[in-house]
Design a protein around this nucleic acid. Sequence first.
DNA 1: CATGAATGAGCCTTCATTCAT
DNA 2: GATGAATGAAGGCTCATTCAT
Lengths: 209, 209, 209, 209
Amino acid sequence: MDDQKKLTRAEQKARRPVQILDAAFEEFVERGYVATRVEDIASRVGVTKGTIYVYFETKEQLFEAMIRHISVPLEELLASSNEIKGTAAERLQKRIELIYDLIIKDRKLRELIRFVIAEGSRFPQIVDRHHDIFIDPLERQMQSLLDEGIKNGEFRPTPAAFSDAVIAPAIAFLVFKLIFEDRRILDRDTYLKAHVDLILHGLCEPAPR
Amino acid sequence: MDDQKKLTRAEQKARRPVQILDAAFEEFVERGYVATRVEDIASRVGVTKGTIYVYFETKEQLFEAMIRHISVPLEELLASSNEIKGTAAERLQKRIELIYDLIIKDRKLRELIRFVIAEGSRFPQIVDRHHDIFIDPLERQMQSLLDEGIKNGEFRPTPAAFSDAVIAPAIAFLVFKLIFEDRRILDRDTYLKAHVDLILHGLCEPAPR
Amino acid sequence: MDDQKKLTRAEQKARRPVQILDAAFEEFVERGYVATRVEDIASRVGVTKGTIYVYFETKEQLFEAMIRHISVPLEELLASSNEIKGTAAERLQKRIELIYDLIIKDRKLRELIRFVIAEGSRFPQIVDRHHDIFIDPLERQMQSLLDEGIKNGEFRPTPAAFSDAVIAPAIAFLVFKLIFEDRRILDRDTYLKAHVDLILHGLCEPAPR
Amino acid sequence: MDDQKKLTRAEQKARRPVQILDAAFEEFVERGYVATRVEDIASRVGVTKGTIYVYFETKEQLFEAMIRHISVPLEELLASSNEIKGTAAERLQKRIELIYDLIIKDRKLRELIRFVIAEGSRFPQIVDRHHDIFIDPLERQMQSLLDEGIKNGEFRPTPAAFSDAVIAPAIAFLVFKLIFEDRRILDRDTYLKAHVDLILHGLCEPAPR
DNA sequence: CATGAATGAGCCTTCATTCAT
DNA sequence: GATGAATGAAGGCTCATTCAT
């Protein structure tokens, strides 16, 4: 009993930083960086203001740490899609499906985008970081898939920046979700189907007239 | 010089609200709603804090008025595209070009989107308004263009929500511009070409294998 | 018609100061000196802020003028009681009745007392003035009535400051009216009767035991 | 000197609310509710503005708490008079003496009346409270003393509201003290003597003529 | 480590007063 | 005389941060 309590306490302490980061995420999401009060974050954890400052020097550093905390490199998030075998088209489709699933299930990912848009000018590092671990890998992955498909004749040759256009519907979907929250319901399957339909057709040589 | 002195009180007063709204736009863009100080808006106009309150009751109402001030209905913005004649494909392409031009030239439009994303939860009305005068007309216009093209055989039949996918690359382009500001240069022509290339191919019947 | 209009306008202007003083009275009563806004006084008159300053230099001077405006010397108010003939007791009773009527009907008198109590430390002159035209005459009148009654054997000899005690129930009645406004109803006749009953008995020689 | 240093944080904190309430009393007395600045209250305590808000949510709540702080039920204040034995007249006189002593010594009681008169319309609760713990008990106590005296033949039968008339001279004395502060000196003994003289005579059957 | 009292800089808003028209 | 735009000095309240316990 005593043992367990000690353990629990020790564990508690070890978890504090993460608890704080999670609480910070919720509060910053709800009110934005400036309007969020350190005290509210503390309350959410069940501690007092001072405790936050034991673990983080300033509200600003806490915010940055929170952003890092929720920024998981895209590769990890899409790891399962690397195992997929099949045609380039099949793999492309699978990857896009995973992205929609991510957008829908991963609230932290979604809100990360909001932070990048809303607080980007205040925290330029998060923009850069976001580009490096997110946008850039995403474009690269897409591009390499396209290249494979083109090389093996599945896809027609495409102009520069085509990969951006290919993932754009998913980005627009994400932005719509950010904007409308729960005020408008966006059906994943409908959007996914339209998306896949567009790009798979868009990658084919058109029929001769 | 003479110009300024010529302004009568009445003229000055008539311009004040717009001056303030313009200044407010700049400040709110730079710092976001919460971090913007009414005094900074006043300084930018060249008046003192109190003057702002002669024209707007609260900072909140000033923000909302500013949003209304910069929210021009999409129809107006795309008015010139209504005169275009030609095939559905030609008109679709023209309209998309106009959207890119709008995104690039109309900073107010761009920042409006940022406000919608960043302050939407604080100002739900701006989200609804934005949907009504922007998103919705955009989707309708696109959809009716698609419908025409499908009816006259130019385009293949498409699934639901396809119009969203069709404009998505422009939206993604806008979001990228918001996120990267001037830190990364996005070439309009490259993106536009990829966009048009994708959707025009995506609307054709694929060639038989 | 023209004549009349001109006259009316001229009259209007001549009345302005009084209109303002009356409006000031209402506003100062409602909110007290500090919380009253010059603009509200102006609105009540139907003019704008600036106009007030045409007639009064500062809010402070306006307040003082308003106080003077409502401070009618007690002699005037009790003029009718001077004509009374009869025994000292009869005249005493009559005078007290008049005081109760005054308290009930003259809201300005009542509120003047409130101003003296509430704003006296801010405006010491009004306290002095109030003493000179109100308290002091009241005490003198009472005292001379008492003296007459004592001289002619109607009343027993009384100690110093007895006149204050004699009018005290009316003062207490006034204070109660100030405190409770309309929240508690104080019946004039009941109080008056108790008052007169007390002092007429109190002025007689007691019966031997 | 040593005393102050000895105060632990905990002790300091325990005293703070009372320190603040006492300081608030002084400032509110000096300037009235509206004109008093929270910062001045803080200075008087020797802390800064923010500290006041650690203990009281708003200036308004601080004022109300201050009023409660100085509102001691009348029973407590007149407790010693309950032990008095003697005739009704003796007890009545004793009680009145205590009231004068209270008025003279208890500045908080006096100023409470001023607050009730001056701020009553802004804080109706304090008026009601004041009636319940002050006016009403006072009237009841007086009335029951009168009733006793009447029952045992000491006093003649009296009309309704007579008890109000009986205490009125003390109330008038209090009001005079409020109005004239130290600008006019009111001699307690003179007023008390006149008061007692009036009511004791006023309660006797008059001598036959 | 955790607490929470205290600080002090800061910001929104109000309002008496001025003055050009 | 009347107006009302503009000023600027306050003042209520907030909150990140510190530090003694």
